[in-house]
């Protein structure tokens, strides 16, 4: 087996026909097969064998039909960027594959966070923020069902961006439940969840995990279960806000508005107004409506 480390080939890739090849959308099968042999594959030397790290799916190569093998450890950063650019042009790199690429660079090439950030934004179209890098780095450790969904673009990357901020034990518990379809979360719900967990002292983590476990093990349907989980964590993270809300709802109920008026306090009670919405269809209802609105005066004590 011939190993070509581009770092030793003095910029060979730059002048190779590979980029031209990648840029041509329509190629004859014959030409394609011929050029395919030039497509580089990342490998690592594991002593007894060379292990293929990654190659574009579109051109999954057999050992007989393989282009240059790049030892990741020995390849210059500029050539790594070049191969990524090339691969992107041949076949879009999926989020999962980007995760693998970043892991190789971090673990095999010992790239620093700032190097990863630079490469991620320049060559992989990943936002150059640390949390994004960490999100992608975690992809190869996800349960295989979720990896498949990521590869097939059936699940949002943003969901993991939000969840990745959770403590590891909770992250593992929730991603396992997602993989086994025992949990369903929208990106918005995941964001709410991770924000609420960030508000809680670290020593409350065991209780949070206990709460999550009991929600996941309940017999409720998935929607109800998610609602329970979010409510439980929110109540712990926002005790005062939960109090205001409950108090407001109680006062509203006591007014017995006959379902005519919907009254909402400002978001998080940050404001000194109330939002009213109502509907009437008959003129005689208007007086009843005014009476109901007047009753609401008492609610202004709460904002």
């Amino acid at each position: 087996m011939k190993i070509t480390a581009i770092s030793q080939a003095n910029g060979q890739l730059k002048t190779s026909p590979l980029l031209d090849y990648a840029r041509q959308e329509k190629l004859s099968d014959e030409k394609r097969a011929e050029q395919q042999k030039l497509l580089p594959t990342w490998v690592v030397d594991e002593g007894s064998e060379l292990k293929v790290l990654w190659q574009p799916r579109k051109f999954a190569q057999t050992s007989e039909n393989r282009g240059p093998l790049l030892l990741v450890e020995e390849t210059q950063p500029s050539h790594i960027e070049l191969t990524l650019e090339l691969w992107q042009q041949v076949d879009r790199i999926s989020a999962l594959e980007k995760g693998y690429v970043l892991n190789f660079l971090k673990n095999k090439k010992k790239s620093t966070t700032s190097q990863l950030k630079q490469l991620a934004s320049q060559s992989l179209q990943i936002p150059p923020a640390e949390q994004w890098i960490e999100t992608y780095l975690a992809f190869p450790q996800l349960p295989s069902e979720l990896q498949k969904q990521l590869q097939d673009e059936q699940i949002s990357i943003n969901l993991f961006y939000q969840l990745n901020d959770l403590p590891e034990e909770l992250f593992t518990l929730l991603t396992q439940a997602l993989a086994e379809q025992r949990l369903r979360l929208t990106v918005q719900e995941a964001r709410q969840l991770s924000t609420a967990v960030r508000r809680l002292p670290r020593d409350e983590l065991p209780e949070i995990i206990g709460l999550a476990r009991s929600c996941l093990e309940s017999k409720d349907d998935l929607k109800k279960q998610t609602e329970k989980l979010l409510n439980g964590i929110n109540k712990r993270a926002y005790p005062e806000l939960t109090n205001y809300r409950e108090n407001f709802s109680k006062k509203l109920e006591e007014l017995d508005l006959d379902g005519r008026i919907n009254v909402k306090p400002p978001q998080n009670f940050e404001g000194d107004y109330l939002d009213f919405s109502f509907r009437w269809s008959k003129e005689e209802d208007f007086e009843k409506l005014l009476r109901a609105i007047k009753k609401c005066r008492r609610l202004f004590d709460l904002v």
């Binding site: 809680l200 993270a237 978001q267 940050e270």
Partner: peptide, 15 residues
């Protein structure tokens, strides 16, 4: 790690 909620200016504050 405390109860911070989003205010009308987008900043997070105690309730």
């Amino acid at each position: 790690r405390d109860e911070f909620v989003r205010g009308p200016d987008g900043k997070y504050r105690y309730p």
